[in-house]
Design a protein around this nucleic acid. Structure first.
Length: 562
DNA sequence: AAAAAAC
């Protein structure tokens, strides 16, 4: 069988993806890179039916991206596909378009979806659903979004009526199946999207189970940004005679992204971020934190400082998540403070900036995060705030990307030095006041060196550029920061115990009832039976697991920024 | 170390 495509995806394809995933504004003027003079295939040459071509054309797209060129004809033939590509390459349209074509021939029966697309996050599932609506405009096909966090009965009703395309996250799909709302025996097309991420997130057992429920005789499309051995093993298990399509990652840090790194003390990070945002010409930006809790805190802080900001992480109500993302895409919110839920896959057109409020623990996540900007050949700027303990993660990132991130000072803030030790081994102290921590770092390390792996060789070259000594312009009062101290050094419950800092009166915060009320001011002293020596893990466990922006604890912000 | 995902 001859390959239905031309071999050469030029490595420069990132410069001109014609169809990107759910890009809100298509910018039809944005022609493919002019230097590629080869005769570019059009969508109509790929074998798609007229209603689809019309929908595509209406969005202003004329030329398929490399992955679309390669995948679409193949998928139309009913063959399996192994796609090594990530968002931004036009991958989503690469499978939605031919799937719509395949499915348009007949109708679905109740409870028996004809195709299934598995996505690792709810936002991605929604994005794919949007694609089906967009391109299925002139076809009479139905789809259902089966994800957690939303009414199950609505989803069940949809399924009862019969859907052609089922877009789902694994957890809810299995739940639905177990409740008998779903039969997968007639599902002939399966898409596993972002398989590497499914693996990272531990979804693979679920995915394997789901696949076992599908008929053997089916078409499978499998996408992953990387092809690690484990992913390869899965692909072998799920696919039959697949065509492999590899699109060079647009994420090898697109040259259109300008990266900068500011090394500041943990204490100065919020202030540093505000200064960077103000001095940059920020149109819209994602701000990444490593923890959901810190997303909440930073969101509150930025709101308080009058920034146009929203928050997004997995503990927030699903309706809020989608609504916030919509507002951000629509430009009603200019900053989006988020966890890594938004690091991969989510495609927001034309982000001017990405800020890493925290350095990501995994170097690849850095690439994914900053890859949200600088897309489609546009300029993007990515700023990372590092604190002294982040030295080794930063080095890992620089090793991965192959270049050092230029350091910048933040005007008006102290420049600090890397800590000698890895922050991880001292994680309990992360939030301790900088001065105190600095003193501890300076102390002899004999005690903690024993039995530990030796710290990596300090890299001579890039680590210590001579940094200008800049003193704080405005005197920032050294606050006591009670909340953080207590959280991190639980053994001694600090005095004063019942002092009540400025905060709304009780009763004005209905969400802090019962168990939850013990969150901060009561937390320490009121634990019965332990006296002042409460084991650290108990204090950690006592924090309620779920909180979102609306109920987020304001303590840290109030106390550090009063 | 943390994030994501099911009630």
């Amino acid at each position: 069988m001859p390959e239905p495509d031309e071999p050469g995806p030029a490595p420069a394809e990132a410069s001109g993806p014609v169809v990107t995933d759910a890009e809100p504004e298509p910018a039809p003027d944005e022609a493919p890179a002019p230097e590629e003079a080869e005769p570019e295939p059009t969508f109509s040459a790929l074998g798609l039916s007229e209603p689809l071509l019309r929908a595509v054309a209406e969005k202003g797209y004329t030329h398929p991206t490399p992955i679309q060129q390669q995948a679409i004809p193949w998928v139309l033939m009913g063959r399996d596909l192994l796609g090594c590509a990530q968002t931004g390459t036009g991958k989503t349209a690469g499978f939605t378009l031919p799937m719509l074509d395949i499915l348009s021939g007949s109708r679905a029966r109740a409870r028996m979806p004809r195709s299934l697309i598995l996505e690792p996050t709810r936002e991605l599932a929604l994005q794919v659903a949007d694609n089906f609506v967009l391109y299925g405009k002139y076809l009479k096909l139905t789809h259902a979004l089966i994800i957690g966090g939303e009414s199950m009965s609505d989803q069940k009703d949809l399924l009862m009526r019969g859907v052609d395309v089922l877009i789902a996250t694994p957890g809810r799909l299995i739940d639905m199946f177990e409740r008998g709302g779903l039969l997968l025996t007639d599902t002939r097309v399966l898409v596993i999207d972002e398989a590497d991420r499914m693996l990272d997130m531990g979804f693979i057992p679920d995915v394997e189970r789901i696949v076992s429920l599908l008929p053997k005789n089916r078409q499978t499309l499998f996408f992953s940004a990387t092809m690690a051995p484990e992913i390869r093993r899965l692909a072998d298990a799920f696919l039959q005679n697949p065509k492999e399509v590899t699109v060079s990652k647009p994420a090898t840090v697109a040259t259109t992204i300008t990266e900068r790194l500011a090394l500041v003390s943990e204490h100065d990070k919020r202030e540093a971020l505000r200064r960077l945002i103000r001095q940059e010409d920020v149109q819209n930006a994602l701000i990444f934190c490593n923890r959901k809790r810190d997303v909440d805190i930073l969101y509150k802080s930025l709101t308080k400082h009058q920034f146009s900001v929203g928050a997004l992480h997995g503990d927030m109500a699903q309706s809020t998540r989608f609504a916030t993302l919509e507002k951000f895409k629509a430009g009603e919110i200019r900053l989006l403070c988020c966890s890594d839920v938004a690091a991969r896959g989510i495609d927001i057109g034309g982000l001017s900036h990405v800020f890493n409020f925290d350095v990501p623990h995994h170097a690849e996540d850095y690439v994914h995060r900053i890859g949200r900007t600088g897309r489609a050949g546009r300029e993007g700027r990515a700023f990372t705030l590092a604190s002294p303990e982040d030295r080794f993660v930063v080095e890992a990132i620089e090793k991965l990307t192959g270049h050092p991130i230029p350091r910048i000072p933040v005007e008006g803030l102290d420049v600090v030095e890397w800590a000698e030790s890895d922050g991880r081994r001292r994680r309990g102290r992360k939030a301790a006041p900088a001065a105190k921590r600095a003193k501890e770092e300076a102390a002899p390390k004999a005690a903690r060196a024993g039995g530990r792996r030796k710290a990596a060789e300090p890299k001579p070259a890039e680590a210590k550029q001579p940094q200008p000594e800049i003193r704080a312009v405005e005197a920032v009062a050294p606050e006591p920061r009670r909340a953080e101290t207590r959280r991190t050094e639980p053994k001694r419950i600090p005095e004063p115990r019942y002092e009540r800092p400025l905060r709304p009166e009780r009763g004005t915060r209905p969400e802090r009832e019962g168990r939850d009320r013990r969150r901060d001011d009561d937390l320490g002293p009121a634990v019965v039976g332990f006296g002042p020596d409460i084991p650290a893990f108990m204090l950690v466990a006592a924090r309620p697991r779920r909180q979102h922006a609306a109920t987020a604890d304001l303590t840290a912000v109030e106390e550090t920024e009063a």
